[in-house]
């Protein structure tokens, strides 16, 4: 039921959300999250997103499957782009649909937290001054954001 794409092309978030709910009368809530490339105060020319073809799709599918087990979802769409992405362009899309808003909100947040720490993608910065940019470093705050879902599950 879930739609998962790993692609170089841009996506249309509104169209994806509309596709997910088309013809459905059981859906009461749709949450759409779009992650966008920042220019880091004008210093960034672009991000280069490297990915592990095959595993990227498989890992996103495993994360979506976990979300579907935890929340009563009527539909999920996850799209992650790779390749060169300029500031202002979209990087990632998560759309979750459910009968009620809490499941849709929580599942979208869970999916993003897990995509950031588990999906095999790596960002390299290209600077505006043409200097060799660095690989973006993984942030502890992202690990903590993902870990709190495990803690929450243990507490349930």
């Amino acid at each position: 039921m879930a739609t998962i794409h790993v692609q170089a092309e841009a996506f249309d978030a509104a169209a994806e959300a509309a596709t997910l709910t088309k013809g459905r009368t059981d859906i009461g809530a749709v949450v759409t999250f779009t992650g966008i490339c920042r220019d880091e105060a004008g210093s960034l020319a672009a991000l280069e997103l490297e990915h592990y073809p095959g595993m990227a799709e498989a890992e996103i599918a495993r994360v979506v499957e976990e979300a579907e087990k935890r929340w009563p979802l009527a539909g999920v769409t996850a799209i992650h782009r790779h390749g060169r992405i300029a500031p202002g362009e979209d990087i990632v899309l998560v759309v979750t649909a459910s009968a009620h808003r809490q499941a849709a909100f929580e599942a979208a947040e869970f999916l993003m937290d897990y995509l950031k720490t588990r999906a095999p993608f790596w960002k390299k910065e290209h600077r505006i001054d043409d200097s060799e940019g660095d690989w973006v470093e993984a942030r502890d705050v992202d690990d903590h954001a993902a870990a709190r879902w495990t803690e929450r599950k243990a507490a349930e």
Binding site: M55, V92, L115, T117, R118, P120, F121, W135, A138
Partner: peptide, 24 residues
């Protein structure tokens, strides 16, 4: 599939090494 370092290689056909992920 992600694995911890203590995992036995067994009949693995493909093993990948990479830094912590920074997608999303």
């Amino acid at each position: 599939t992600h694995v911890p370092h203590e995992t036995a290689i067994g009949e693995a056909r493909e093993i990948a090494f990479f830094p912590p992920m920074t997608g999303g």
